[in-house]
Amino acid sequence: MASAKRERPNRKLPNEEPVALPETDDGTILFNVPFPKDLAQLKAMAPIILKQPYRIDYIHSYGQDSPFFAGLANGKLLGTVCTKCGYKYATPKLHCMDCGSECDWFELPQVGAVHTFTVCYFGSEEFLKETPFVLILVEWPGVDTLFLSRLIGVDPLSPSLEWVGMKVRAKFRRLSKFKPTDVYFVPA
């Protein structure tokens, strides 16, 4: 009967019906909430705890770093080099942290070495399903900074300090996701 009324929005409100918002059945519905007769008891009430969804799609621009991701899609690993002082960045920075000048792009060698690593047996929710995974920072001779990546092809259940220094080779996803994980490393 109520829905029949909503189909006639131009209908004038009948005097015999109370003015009220329509009830809906979306969201959280809690029936029969206990409530004391004596309001003094309310401070002893247990808290009401709800689970609420929280999801967004976010528009992220890689901005000046975009060529790096285009490089990955073309099987190239790109770093930047300062036009003035020559400082070399394995993870691109378009202005030099050292002298403030602009940097140019250059292609990094696809073989580097493990500077450090860890094996994540737990992780953030987004990556929990991928555990255990190996994170490495890669170094190259003559390049001043490092590059964070994943290492596969080693046993994540037997980590060892001997992995430090290991030569590793870049591999690229055939189907680019335009994320830094489009490149990963394997023992060279």
Partner: peptide, 18 residues
């Protein structure tokens, strides 16, 4: 969030590498 987080963002992992 361009270069670090998507690789497996996890602070315990970062400190472990250090």
């Amino acid at each position: 969030v361009s270069f670090d987080y998507p690789v497996g963002g996890f602070y315990s992992g970062y400190y472990a590498m250090m």
